[in-house]
Nucleic acid binder design. Structure first.
Length: 427
RNA sequence: GGAAGCGUGGCCGAGCGGUUGAAGGCACCGGUCUUGAAAACCGGCGAGGGGCGACCCUCCGUGAGUUCGAAUCUCACCGCUUCCGCCA
């Protein structure tokens, strides 16, 4: 959520900046609502002040044993109007809030302008696309050859966009999670955290998935309103909801492994082959809670933490900065990391690292108290995948494949693989 | 699932329906003292919001209700604790 004061005070500038990300702010509608709110709120509060004062007088008069019927009548005189005002104000404020909850974050000044993914800008590249002296297969064909991936069985059990993995490949999938968590906790200063996979609507509103993107979520049946998490970002960031941290507690860094559940509504026909886009996938997520002045530096280091995993695994990648038109709803700035996939002959997203500044914090009322003892301030939140596990597995399969369809185990994973160093093709 | 109890400021903890946004303590901030620190003492100190301002409003788990007036009374819901049962 944007700062309501900013919205009121600099409505036109805000609208202009939101336009760069393709969002049309209805300036007129907002201004009209805001004007009505202002006059109604002033009237309501004046009447409330009146009632408060008179009630106090009644108390005093009664204490002295005086007659209070005149005072009571005075209150009666405006009680009706007050009730109307209060009710209308409540409706109006709800309307304004709904409007504000639907407004995306303002892009940071350093974000390149652009209308869509074609305008994203590459900022660096690591490694070079893997070369083969044979024609490389994609992970689906490799999965068939090794007998380790089984989409048909997954379809039988659940449907499209699910996968079943067997043996050493399933183990490598688990090993990746271990490597990622160990790296972030031992080398990058994150605290490991375990969280619920089912969350309430308040949490989803806090991070920005609700109210606007409900169709992307799986909602559970049952007497409680619960949703499956689309990312660990939701439960982990909401740890900070309604909190006031002391300044010396910051920064807080969490690393968390969870499954993620996404309906992928609206991506029909996209990445239908293989395990690139699944309804269920594993991810290790990094979340940071920092002081406002530190958040952009934190985004750089957090992105580096995700890159470190790819470097350990020897997977070529590039980092791009998303342009204004391609960023997510809540983000002020986002780097995507794209890994080289020989099977597709292109770079594909494997991590997304974002600085939300105070956008999520305002929705969550996540704050900290500055050292000088003054008012609590909103903190800044960030998160990034470190990494998407399924896609990392795909990248390893495709980059580490050999001519016979077997897959070498990257050195960094060997300690976790119990002696297996090749996923071989059965005879 | 059954029974009982409890939800008050950053934390702990008082609070007869009426000058209570809330005693007290801790923490925190400022000061005195000290070579420095600690201790002691003095002072300050909840959050959110509105108004150009003088100021004003809201908030005691959440939501309804009673009342001129609710932290305080009623109802519902949520959460927590303890005991019993069941259970990975």
């Amino acid at each position: 959520m944007l700062d309501p004061k900013l919205l009121r005070g600099q409505l036109e500038e805000v609208a202009t900046r939101l336009q760069t990300r393709g969002f049309k702010l209805d300036v007129g509608a907002f201004a009209r609502l805001e004007e009505r709110r202002k006059s109604l709120q002033v009237e309501t509060e004046n009447l409330q002040a009146d009632r408060k004062r008179k009630s106090k007088e009644i108390g005093i008069a009664k204490g002295k044993g005086e007659d209070v019927s005149a005072l009571m009548q005075e209150v009666d005189g405006f009680a009706q109007r007050l009730a109307e005002c209060e009710q209308q104000l409540e409706v109006l404020q709800k309307e304004l809030l709904d409007l504000q909850l639907g407004i995306p974050n303002i892009p940071h000044a350093s974000v390149p302008a652009g209308g869509g993914e074609d305008d994203n800008v590459e900022v660096r590249k690591w490694g070079t696309p893997t070369q083969f002296d044979f024609t490389p297969l994609d992970h689906v064909d490799l999965g068939v050859k090794t007998g380790a991936l089984d989409f048909e069985t997954a379809a039988k059990i659940s449907g499209a966009r699910f996968s079943v993995m067997y043996g050493p490949l399933a183990r490598m999938h688990r090993a990746l999670i271990q490597l990622m968590l160990d790296t972030h906790t031992r080398e990058h200063g994150y605290r490991e955290v375990y969280v619920p996979y089912m969350v309430n609507p308040e949490s989803l509103q806090g991070t920005g998935q609700l109210p606007k993107f409900e169709e992307e979520l799986y909602k559970l049946r049952g007497e409680k309103d619960l949703y499956l998490i689309p990312t660990a970002e939701v439960p982990v960031t909401n740890i900070a909801r309604d909190m006031i941290y002391s300044e010396d507690q910051l920064p807080i860094r969490f690393a968390c492994h969870t499954p993620c559940f996404r309906s992928e509504a609206g991506s029909h026909g996209k990445d239908v082959r293989g395990m690139i886009r699944q309804h269920q996938f594993e991810k290790v997520e990094m979340v940071q809670l920092v002081k406002p002045e530190d958040s952009h530096a934190a985004l750089e280091s957090l992105t580096g933490h995700a890159e470190a995993i790819l470097q350990k695994l020897g997977l070529p990648y590039r980092v791009i900065v998303l342009c204004t038109g391609d960023m997510g709803f809540s983000s002020a700035k986002t780097y995507d990391i794209e890994v080289w996939l020989p099977g597709q002959g292109k770079y594909r997203e494997i991590s997304s690292c974002s600085n939300f500044e105070d956008f999520q914090a305002r929705r969550m009322q996540a704050r900290y108290r500055p050292k000088d003892g003054k008012k609590p301030e909103l903190l800044h939140t960030l998160n990034g995948s470190g990494l998407a596990v399924g896609r990392t597995l795909v990248a390893i399969m495709e980059n580490y494949q050999q001519a016979d369809g077997s897959i070498r185990v990257p050195d960094a994973l060997k300690p976790y693989m119990g002696g297996v160093d090749v996923i071989s093709v059965p005879a």
